[in-house]
Nucleic acid binder design. Sequence first.
DNA 1: CCAAACTAACTATGCTCATAGTTAGTTTGC
DNA 2: GCAAACTAACTATGAGCATAGTTAGTTTGG
Lengths: 201, 201
Amino acid sequence: MSLRYALLALLTVEPMTGYDLHKQFESSVGHVWHAPDSQIYPELKRMEAAGLVEGEEVPWGPRGKKRQYHITDTGLADFQAWMTAPMDYARTRDPAHLKAAYLEWATPEAAREHFRAHITYHETLRLQWVATADAIRTGTSTMLHRRLQNTEPEKHEATIAFKEFTYEGLIAKAETEIAWARRGLELVDRLSASSQSTTGG
Amino acid sequence: MSLRYALLALLTVEPMTGYDLHKQFESSVGHVWHAPDSQIYPELKRMEAAGLVEGEEVPWGPRGKKRQYHITDTGLADFQAWMTAPMDYARTRDPAHLKAAYLEWATPEAAREHFRAHITYHETLRLQWVATADAIRTGTSTMLHRRLQNTEPEKHEATIAFKEFTYEGLIAKAETEIAWARRGLELVDRLSASSQSTTGG
DNA sequence: CCAAACTAACTATGCTCATAGTTAGTTTGC
DNA sequence: GCAAACTAACTATGAGCATAGTTAGTTTGG
């Protein structure tokens, strides 16, 4: 159900086509909620059927046309209801920690590789998020800029602050994973050394 | 696909029925990978068809019977191959951070409630994980005890260490979420105060 | 001027997962 | 002695999601 609200969140800025939304999912919102276009198009249709958005054909080039969706009053009300409602947390499904729990079945080198890959993955994410957070702080983010233009000035501070704060949370998460995986590498070294001494002595 | 390997991980200890496995998913492995029984039973059948496990009927009480699965050599090889193979990370889908990014649409009180619920949720998880980590350290964990009985002594140290380390990672994650949400509460207070002074002044 | 890249909007298939319900035998506690 | 709780093993349905493929018009760069 979160996809629906991620879409509504974007449509509170301005009307967009499915394609526009899909692109936003590859950058801004996609940092917290990934969705491929094959999920976005049918969801928009369902949302239109539910009266949350309305689509209209707009011309595109000489012969082309595209379907642009805008949020309705019902959609806005639904979005705000979701904001107020308690969240339902998904049950834990954490392949990295699942694997880590049974690394005695892997060779030390495979175990190290697991942690190295974990570090690389989260460092890549971290860099992306740091860049996005910087763009928010410095006002370079075009999406945020457009959003602020359609927002009452007294809400500007909170709008910026919550976005910045969200990315701070994501960065903190990534850093926790990196620190854990680094300690994992140390653990593998320690265990290799102790099994070496057992075999050797 | 991780469900398959979570099941194989459990079956490296001893043969189990679907029901046994389902109970383990409510406690030990379930901390990193949740699965309802309705997923476990069909997966076991698929795994048997793939030759990873073998099931046999064993008597249960005077008239009852149950189907007990044990891991095959193929299953063990597949599990170890998974341990060595690189992981595929699931794309980010984080409803808590999605919502946080748009909290300017909520009332301050709803925003506070969001962060309070986040703290409660992760504190509950944290307590569970701390208790499990303690049980691993003190040797109170029955599941780990059984596993160690079926494990060569020279692998004991690594077996305990990786399990303990996994829970340390989960605890660190929970603590990061809690710290973030606490800062969220402070942020809401700060924003309320500044909008108050704007309205008031 | 034309190929390549991009914009636009899908459809199809199959796995994963949540939720709920069903059937039947066993053990435990009062 | 019997009800309640537990063990055991499913089935059914529908949503969510990944992956891949399709069709067609538009813009851009050499």
